[in-house]
Nucleic acid binder design. Structure first.
Lengths: 189, 189
DNA sequence: AACTAAAGTCAACAATCGTTGACTTTTAGG
DNA sequence: CCTAAAAGTCAACGATTGTTGACTTTAGTT
């Protein structure tokens, strides 16, 4: 066999990435140490460097995120706002959830590299999703407003765990915020 | 004179605090070093510890923040949402601005102590401001929603500098978001 | 079985960090 | 002027960090 030779290294490569996402999400970029990541992946710290060259590049590899926003054009006009926030919340706490989002948001506050990455995700995926249903001249404006509410929700509910938000069932929060998103998306401004 | 003896130490104490806020706001808790703070205050690093015992306590002292939210009861009912966001934005970029807010928000994402502090500020000041104009049983719900939008705006506009928000004049952003705050404050939910 | 490249280990490096204790300088009061 | 406390300096500690190079083990091919 010639392929399985690669397989072994790919498995530990994946183990490193998983452990890295875990630590970066929990502790942030600075407090997450390569030694702790290596320990969770049950390997030597130096191997982490051999696989990813540096901590910075490991982070870059760990932070590759897809928001999986729905295609808006196939949804009824008046339901699109609700669809957006439903998907967004499912991405954080539903079956679509993983900790890459926590990792990215948490790190973006202190790490310029992560902030840059988050801006890219925003531009490509949020603006990209709106492009098909929003006139070009309003695109940036509406996308920015939507991002401010969605990321604000993620920040207060999942990172800060503000009592007024973290304790409430997801369904209630969706009901409250959906009209806001709908207005930012297609309402009068 | 018996007082001036205290004066000298109070001045360097203040210099340390100013430098600390500067560094904490720019680089976050972990990347801000006591050595760099001391250098900016033109003193020895050990003095910082002598004044504040530890980095943690220095941070706690630096992060004492007052949102200065307006008294809502003296404002016309339909204008209260706009008044809230106007004050909030003035606090970040107007003449009321200082970098304690940046420092607190940036650090709260990775530092549990800062997150705790931000929760306290939220509970005491935001909930406190709404208490006089919102029925008790809706208090937490409406306060949480408002916090999600205000902090989301601060995050995207001032920390992440998302193109759709950071580039626009403050007045436009206020116009767009005021109705949202007004609805969260007093509208049907 | 022998050989070779990949995969993994081990120990150490240089740098940075918060913190400490001994020491010196400044300042205020009798 | 003398003295004692306050204010400030200096050098070093122990710990942790990312990263490196030499070494050993594993596994696939001839």
């Amino acid at each position: 066999m010639s392929l399985p030779a690669l397989r072994k290294s790919d498995r530990t490569r994946q183990a490193i990435l998983t452990a890295a996402r875990d630590h970066f999400a929990m502790r942030g970029y600075d407090r997450a140490s390569i030694r702790a990541i290596a320990a969770q992946a049950s390997i030597d710290p130096s191997l982490v460097i051999r696989y990813f060259t540096s901590k910075e590049q490991l982070f870059a590899a760990a932070v590759d995120v897809d928001l999986r926003l729905p295609e808006l054009s196939s949804i009824q006009k008046t339901r699109r706002g609700r669809a957006l926030i439903e998907h967004f919340i499912a991405r954080w706490e539903g079956e679509l959830s993983d900790d890459v989002l926590t990792l990215l948001l948490r790190s973006a506050a202190t790490n310029e590299q992560a902030a840059e990455r988050l801006r890219d995700v925003f531009c490509e995926q949020v603006v990209g999703t709106l492009r098909e249903v929003v006139p070009p001249e309003e695109l940036n404006r509406r996308a920015g407003l939507i991002a401010s509410q969605l990321l604000g929700l993620a920040l207060t509910r999942y990172l800060l765990r503000l009592p007024g938000l973290a304790e409430r069932p997801a369904g209630e929060v969706i009901d409250d915020i959906a009209p806001t998103i709908q207005r930012y998306l297609a309402g009068d401004l």
